[in-house]
Design a protein around this nucleic acid. Structure first.
Length: 510
RNA sequence: GGCUCCGUGGCCAAGUGGCUAAGGCAGCGGAUUGCAAAUCCGCCAUCACCGGUUCGAAUCCGGUCGGAGCCUCCA
């Protein structure tokens, strides 16, 4: 039984899809006016993981992430850079997509763009006018907040407490909290034909229109960052529910926002150039999108690798604030090492590559019958992992079970001296356990392929290392530890670690 | 001012009424090792503070202090 925290009810609820066995998820994606920063990746990574888990649990999931490719910021950017809005959108969408790919986000089924759904948007707006929830004034169309009884229920706000956008449009609105569904085109703005003249969509309407087109009038999960609860999701909900007269989504899920936490004020390894007043900045933590150094996600991926970043994000609960820091990322990397080491150990023993194991796509039945003690322990951790995930996708708790699994497997190998000589039985049990680790980590979207370890992968290095190790072995055999240690220490200085294992000497970079 | 949320060991972080408060990083002790590395074993918290409810609270209620977000664009 999966439980989900619903922003609308402010509590965890039992997950029950509208249609048996099927789940529709809509996640608010980026406005593509600039390069994405790490904060933009929180939602995609957690929902990618949620989709993996729901699929594993037997649901047929459809996941939609929209691209907002027309709005004020895009228009401004286009003027600044003197190139068409479409060119900016295209460039930034490509950036976004490549970041997603690096972070292993590959579960998205549809990525509709606002500009490709103008007809739906106009249609939706027209329906709202026909039903008396919206009105047109001089080419603008506004949503009439006071016509909506339920307005404010998502963000717990009353209609009049919610100030809509001000500016010169304010004068034409019936109430200041009314918001634009359609904006009349100004000079030099991209625009489309509509029953109200040339114009473009307001910010919220595209999501109502596109989610309906792809997922239907009502669907299961709508997600986004906590900062979207108001006004964006409140308004979306108002539009859709007024238009259809029924609930828009069953579960509203919002991820916590990321803050920049490095003492230096750095984000993404960039120095914060424009900060020159005193030391007060030292401990300032701000929301990433407001921090001066926001950006540099590509650099971050380059230096740390997507897997480390993904793991870093998934180690905390999706609803809590994550303080971003280089140190935190470093630590995540250190923690991942124990997994990589186990994978190598497994390969040395069985000759099989962990990454070539095919993940089981179906959640197995409850505990297995008469197994050896080891596999029973493995089962305990597997079950604990699933319990964590069932509880509002608690990936932070689930990762601890992964570490428990690693320790359990290492202990089994140690205690039974499997590295020295393995019986069929041991190998079979080991294989089952590692397969389970494969399946469970696959749900988090990690360890799907080897992380490129740049250095030391070429043939020459391998041969040289073989030689060094042989020389050291000879020195050790003749108890010439001075030479042996000189070899080991010298290698350590250039970043190569020698490991004398039960089954022979090995080496690793880093 | 209105509305949310958070404060768990040196650091990060699960846990939101009841077995001995997960896990990671760092540290310490031990096994192993020629010494290391890796691995395993063990150790390291009464949960910001005060008061209350309860047989029983980190977990519920009230207050205090500290921190964050939203109320304008934001993932």
């Amino acid at each position: 039984m999966i439980r989900v925290y619903n922003t609308l009810s402010k509590q965890k609820e039992t997950f029950q899809p509208l249609e048996e066995g099927k789940v529709g998820i809509y996640l608010c994606g980026p406005t593509v006016y600039d390069k994405s920063h790490i904060g933009h990746m929180v939602g995609p990574i957690i929902f990618d993981t949620i989709k993996r888990y729901l699929s594993y649990s037997g649901y047929d999931v459809t996941w939609v992430v929209n691209i907002t490719d027309v709005d004020d910021k895009l228009i401004m950017k286009s003027r600044e850079r003197g190139i068409p809005m479409e060119a900016i959108a295209e460039e930034m969408t490509a950036d976004y997509l490549s970041n997603l790919a690096s972070l292993g986000v590959d579960q998205i089924d549809h990525m509709p763009k606002a500009t490709e759904n103008i007809d739906e948007i106009i249609q939706f707006t027209r329906e709202l006018i026909d039903k008396g929830f919206a009105y047109a004034v001089d080419g603008d169309v506004f949503f009439d907040v006071n016509a909506d009884q339920g307005y404010g229920k998502l963000s717990n706000r009353t209609a009049d407490a919610a100030q809509g956008e001000g500016g010169e449009a304010a004068a034409r609105k019936k109430s200041s909290s009314d918001f634009a569904l359609w904006k009349a085109a100004k000079e030099d703005e991209p625009s489309w034909d509509s029953p109200w003249g040339q114009g473009r969509p307001g910010w919220h309407i595209e999501c109502s229109a596109m989610s309906r087109r792809i997922l239907g009038e009502s669907f299961d999960i709508h997600g986004g960052g906590l900062d979207l609860v108001f006004p964006h999701h409140e308004n979306e909900l108002a539009q859709s529910e007024c238009c259809h007269g029924k609930p828009m989504v069953s579960y509203w899920m919002h991820n916590g926002l990321m803050r920049a936490g490095d003492a230096t004020g750095k984000v993404g390894g960039r120095s914060d150039r424009d900060e020159n007043d005193s030391e007060t900045q030292a401990t300032v933590e701000t929301k990433i999108s407001r921090s001066k150094g926001a950006g540099g996600l590509a650099d971050l991926i380059e230096t740390h690798g997507g897997e480390r970043i993904r793991f870093f994000l998934l180690r905390t609960h999706y609803r809590s604030t994550i303080v971003f820091s280089e140190a935190g990322l470093q630590e995540a990397g250190t923690a991942l090492e124990s997994f990589y080491r186990l994978f190598e150990r497994y390969e040395r023993i069985t000759g099989n590559c962990f990454y070539k194991l095919v993940p089981t796509t179906q959640r197995p039945e409850e505990n297995s019958r008469d197994q050896c003690e080891f596999l029973q322990q493995v089962d305990v951790h597997r079950q604990s992992y699933l319990d964590h995930m069932d509880d509002d996708f608690n990936t932070g708790g689930a990762t601890s079970d992964l570490f428990d699994l690693v320790r359990t497997i290492n202990r089994y190998i140690d205690q039974n001296e499997i590295e020295q000589s393995a019986s069929e039985q041991h190998l079979a049990a080991l294989t089952i356990a590692v397969q389970i680790l494969r399946d469970l980590s696959g749900i988090l979207g990690i360890f799907s392929s080897p992380q490129k370890n740049e250095a030391g992968n070429d043939e020459l290095t391998g041969q040289l290392m073989e030689l060094m190790i042989a020389l050291r072995a000879e020195a050790r055999a003749s108890k010439n530890f001075e030479i042996a240690d000189r070899i080991r220490d010298g290698l350590a200085e250039i970043g190569v670690t020698i490991e004398d294992r039960k089954d022979g000497t090995g080496w690793r970079v880093g």
